[in-house]
């Protein structure tokens, strides 16, 4: 075990546990690799955070308004629209097809983001 050569005993144990944990996590991750994910986009400070979402078909994008004023999450091409989202409101969209979708807030010019789905 040269890898642990200069490490005190307690740290060895911790390193082992960390390594074991990483292996378990890795196993869990590969099992979940194809599970749909939820991507959270906050509306905050009159911006979408993050403004860029990379998703897969089957994933969900969840918008949460954590701002002081109402906003909307609306497809730039008009394909979908949350309608008015008051403070603390949430709205979600299931990604059904691959491609790039620009979204905006219809109230605030310049408040925009993009979903890239594959």
């Amino acid at each position: 075990m040269r890898f642990f050569a200069n490490v005190p005993k307690r740290r060895k144990a911790m390193q082992f546990m960390t390594a074991a944990g990483i292996i378990i996590l890795a196993a869990a991750c590969s099992a979940e690799a194809d599970m749909p994910e939820t991507h959270i986009v906050e509306m905050h400070g009159l911006t979408f955070v993050p403004a860029t979402v990379e998703a897969k078909v089957g994933d969900t994008v969840l918008w949460i308004n954590t701002d002081v004023m109402p906003h909307t999450a609306t497809a730039a091409d008009g394909a979908w629209d949350s309608g008015m989202m008051e403070v603390d409101d949430e709205w979600s969209l299931l990604i059904e097809e691959a491609g790039e979708m620009n979204f905006i807030c219809t109230y605030h010019p310049g408040m925009e983001g993009v979903i890239t789905a594959e």
């Binding site: 002081v68 004023m69 010019p109 408040m111």
Partner: peptide, 12 residues
Amino acid sequence: VALQTFKVHEGH
């Protein structure tokens, strides 16, 4: 927060 909002209004 108010300033941030009103600046967006100014642009609008």
